[in-house]
Design a protein around this nucleic acid. Structure first.
Lengths: 200, 200
DNA sequence: TATTAGTTTAACAAAATTGTTAAAACAAAC
DNA sequence: GTTTGTTTTAACAATTTTGTTAAACTAATA
């Protein structure tokens, strides 16, 4: 692994654990096993390093499921595929949600910029979903409901446990690996709740 | 309103918006319409101010629903009552979840201490819920499932939209008031999904 | 061997931030 | 009108943090 990669890996760890404001260049350097001077030699500033990492996590967080959402699968199968994809992804990147969501909270303008460059495709995807729901409703398959609301419900059930990871680990007396197993073990529960929850 | 209250209100705003590390004493002072010296005159340090505010939000976040969870209501009614209580509370304190969860993420030891002083009651509440689910399952009312997992599902559906508030507002082109109306408008959706999702 | 890119060390500059202090101003209460 | 608690001002100390720089060192390489 190159030094640049080592630094990025260390920075990813510290930034996602502490957030931008509480992260310290010194800690990143120590984590990477090098000194602060070399940090600036590779990545001019803290902001520049952060941008690279945030961009990466932001993208992973938002656009992974996009393909499934806009596919031609029936709703019930979409739900299954999305939940499966989300949980498998999150187990491998459990730090993403709280990191991205908190940085957006601290600095909401950031999202507006990024969303505007990708905003209309999302709105269109939601509209297409609305149409699909209406069609399947008329076919007697599912309840009538807002596509946006359904998307939020699916994402809520998948993502929230990772946002509250430390609380769940605390209450359930789990270490990180146990938590991951637990999160995956709820996959079928979540799919069942959603599918039974919306069927007519 | 006393100066002390003004300061606490301003500090609450800044801390919950920015988090501890990014919050600036200067900004709190300006927000309260006073100067930095007076901040320290009332509350010795940044840490002390933060402790007071975090304690308050932490408590509101975790122990509001506790009474309903441990009540003797049937599961289906519990779900209704909890979702109702959570959404009404969150609409009035939309900043709580991301603030509390992120601070726990940055500083997980904090929760261990507080949870240990309240940890066993929570574990016992979950055990009682497990027993209730088993009973109602044998009565043919609901599916067999883990109480802990169900609690997480309920909380996920209620709380996550507030954690992702800025994203939802961005995608849906909403201001804060519109978001609150939207969040409340999903109440019956959430109750339906949960109740239909777990019934036999 | 000389060169080059990468790396360390150590010192330091610059800025930001928290916290302290003394003196004066003010307003209410006694 | 004096006292008391509150508030402002302004300066400043202390600390933390980011970023810079120069000099020396190392290891690979031309």
């Amino acid at each position: 692994m190159t030094t640049e990669e080592q630094i990025l890996q260390a920075a990813t760890k510290v930034f996602t654990e502490k957030g931008f404001a509480a992260a310290r260049m010194d800690e990143i350097a120590k984590e990477a096993g090098i000194n602060r001077a070399l940090l600036h030699y590779y990545f001019r500033s803290k902001d520049k390093m952060f941008e690279i990492i945030f961009e990466d996590k932001f993208h992973k967080f938002f656009f992974g499921v996009y393909g499934i959402f806009t596919s031609d699968l029936p709703i019930m199968e979409k739900i299954e595929k999305i939940v499966d994809f989300e949980l498998e992804t999150l187990v491998n990147h459990p730090e993403i949600p709280i990191f991205v969501l908190n940085e957006i909270n601290v600095n909401p303008e950031r999202i507006l910029n990024r969303m505007n460059s990708a905003g209309s495709p999302i709105s269109e995807a939601v509209k297409k979903l609305d149409a699909q729901i209406l069609k399947e409703h008329e076919q007697g398959i599912i309840k009538k409901m807002s596509g946006f609301s359904l998307v939020i419900a699916i994402i809520s059930l998948c993502v929230f446990p990772f946002v509250a990871k430390n609380v769940i680990m605390g209450v359930g007396q789990m270490d990180l690996d146990t938590f991951k197993v637990f999160a995956l073990s709820r996959k079928q529960d979540i799919i069942n709740i959603l599918q039974n929850g919306i069927k007519l």
